[in-house]
């Protein structure tokens, strides 16, 4: 509990100048939570069952939602159920509904489906999936369709990556494909294992960064002046007057060395003195000349 509050506070402090509403932050937090929960989902049916048990102990306001993923092989075939998504419907106090904790369980491919898939691979054709655009009263206005060249999917097994863009309880779009790259000259490669290895991610819209407002600068001249003065104060004495201090120091040093050398020169005679006069202010040079 404690680190969670800390996190919240931290995020609040980071974005305090943006003045977000706190509940919005909660949603984004939850979304990330759901996102993390969704990622390691696997075809094993145990996980959803376990999560349901856990959920029953959760608050009563949340309810479970199920919706089906349907797939089709190429143009000719009809859509059929390929798996089910289960998620928790979370109702925020403002009336907005969001899905969290998405789980996905995929049905195993039947032998006819395997055959169809093989055919797709041979023809380099499209494997299509679809989701209802409204998860509460499916299919909503229309289905959300996505498709991928079937040859992109096989690696060891069949790797798929489902990215669902949500807006409340509406599915905006689903992006379907291989989790990694799909090299362009697509090679025909049959999977060794005919089971899907699914990765699902739920994504919500992110907020645009606020326009920076320098209203103080525009509004009052005094504040602007204050800000202008501050850096001046911060600059040290040395930083400000070095250009005067350095020559001064040089002159002083020169004078000192001259003062020190005075007795010596008096001894060395006239030539030394003239040379000293010709030699420029730097002490080192003067010394060198003297040595000569």
């Amino acid at each position: 509990m404690k680190p969670w509050i800390l996190l919240l506070l931290l995020s609040l402090s980071i974005s305090s100048n943006l003045a977000f509403q706190s509940d919005e932050l909660l949603i984004t937090d939850d979304e990330e939570f759901g996102l993390e929960g969704g990622r390691p989902s696997s075809p094993s049916p145990q996980i959803p069952s376990r999560s349901t048990r856990k959920r029953s102990s959760d608050s009563e306001s949340d309810s479970r939602v199920q919706f089906a993923l349907e797939h089709a092989f190429g143009d000719s075939s009809e859509f059929s159920v390929a798996g089910t998504f289960t998620a928790r419907l979370k109702t925020s106090p403002h009336g907005g509904q969001t899905l969290t904790k998405l789980r996905f369980s995929r049905n195993d491919l039947t032998s006819t489906e395997k055959e169809k898939f093989k055919k797709l691979l041979e023809n380099d054709d499209y494997y299509k999936i679809r989701l209802p655009s409204d998860v509460l009263n499916a299919p909503g206005r229309d289905y959300v369709i996505s498709s991928v060249k079937a040859r992109c999917l096989p690696s060891n097994g069949l790797d798929e990556h489902i990215l669902i863009h949500m807006e409340g309880v509406n599915v905006l779009a689903v992006n379907y494909g291989a989790p990694g790259a799909c090299q362009y000259p697509r090679q025909l490669k049959l999977p060794t294992k005919w089971s899907f290895n699914s990765h699902t991610v739920l994504k919500h819209s992110e907020l645009a960064p606020r326009t920076p407002i320098f209203s103080e600068d525009i509004g009052g001249g005094e504040i602007g002046d204050d800000e202008g003065v501050k850096p001046m104060v911060e600059r040290s004495f040395w930083a400000k007057y070095w250009m005067y201090l350095v020559p001064l120091g040089l002159i002083v040093m020169n004078a000192v060395t001259q003062g020190l050398n005075m007795p010596e020169e008096q001894a060395s005679g006239q030539t030394g003195q003239t040379q000293q006069a010709v030699g420029a202010a730097p002490r080192g040079q003067g010394a060198a000349v003297r040595r000569r």
């Binding site: 289905y143 959300v144 409340g168 599915v171 905006l172 779009a173």
Partner: peptide, 9 residues
Amino acid sequence: RNLWSIVFP
């Protein structure tokens, strides 16, 4: 042939 669709709520 329809390959994808995005349905805005």
